[in-house]
Design a protein around this nucleic acid. Structure first.
Lengths: 195, 195
DNA sequence: GAGCGATTTTAACTTAGGTTAAAATTATTC
DNA sequence: GAATAATTTTAACCTAAGTTAAAATCGCTC
């Protein structure tokens, strides 16, 4: 299956985009490879592209003014959309960095082209709303994880939800995502072995 | 200023809804009073209404299976929208309870009527997206507060952002919102006095 | 304003994460 | 494969939140 087919399939599941609808978009998708560490979007840049990950993992992180530490806000992995939601939706400068964590390959579309598709097809029109809903759901799940779960539970949940991430990226990136320090994650991992 | 004027003003700020646009919606808005403790939407109900708070405070909470505890997810206060975002947007059963915390007054509109407005006017059409964006931003801010702030900082932030909430509702509701236990909030408050 | 219920604080103790630095392990490079 | 760098774990100590129960305070009602 080539990249566009993979994408067509994903968009069909996500927003009920059928083959004809998808054909409209075909000329607008571009391929791009990222080496590990390259940026999808940087701090203060307006995010103008919606990406779809063919292969790889990205993270969105925030640099804490006080400590200078990087704090991971989101991970994006294979077959998911990568985008800096708020910046993209509002076309305003981004507060985050979004960076590839391993060599990655994406298809991306420019927001202007996406807007053209919204006008051309009813199915595409709904995608804009679905993107916002999806962004909301992702963020909401994360809020809930902090409210209802302990760091240990969040860690176990991450392994369950994203085994790919768990196996590809350094643990200190994961501890940052979980909102805890490195040594704490080590203790958690040690605790879990005994269970 | 009567309730509809207040609403018209708020929608103008929010989504650039002008006087003519607003007139279209006038027949669809209904007024409702809530006594303290009454529910705006209950667990497993589909949220079919979008509310605008004229007066009062609502909370959205989740009942933790394990402990049986109520955990506050959102507060909604005066001049804000009250809605169970995800349930409303997807028209699926809600995982939460949304309840008035003090005697409250809202204007509300049925989702079907809102959809009619989307079709009638371009400005209204954008509101659906704005609602999702707003929901995302609210949730995102909350996620960030857990990632970047200590409970003490979250508490101080809440006072700053929502002095009305701070003065109206019991502290144990606030500790639940902050994701900490009652005694911890007491300790934080004690700590702060010395600063 | 006495009594009662709700709310908040305090106390005492436990648990777990934060911090810092060093040690151990794992990857990478030449 | 030895050297070096990156990552992870460990250790020791500190701090703050969790837990449970009791005490104190606040607010309302009659």
């Amino acid at each position: 299956m080539n990249e566009l087919d993979t994408l067509a399939h994903a968009l069909h599941s996500l927003a009920n985009i059928d083959a004809d609808d998808f054909k409209l978009s075909a000329p607008y998708w571009h391929k791009k490879n990222y080496k590990k560490g390259e940026y999808y979007n940087e701090y203060r840049n307006v995010c103008k592209y919606l990406g779809f990950i063919i292969e790889g993992v990205f993270r969105t992180y925030y640099v804490d003014d006080a400590s200078g530490e990087e704090k991971n806000v989101f991970f994006f992995s294979k077959n998911q959309v990568v985008v800096s939601f708020k910046s993209f939706i509002t076309q305003s400068p981004c507060n985050y960095y979004t960076q590839s964590m391993v060599d990655s390959k994406i298809l991306y579309i420019h927001i202007d082209d996406l807007n053209k598709l919204y006008k051309q097809s009813h199915q595409w029109e709904h995608l804009g709303r679905l993107i916002a809903e999806m962004a909301f759901t992702v963020s909401m799940n994360r809020t809930e994880s902090f409210l209802f779960q302990t760091p240990e539970q969040r860690y176990l949940q991450l392994i369950e939800d994203h085994p790919d991430i768990f196996n590809t990226i350094p643990l200190y990136q994961i501890s940052s995502y979980l909102g805890i320090q490195g040594p704490s994650l080590s203790r958690i991992r040690k605790r879990i072995i005994g269970k």
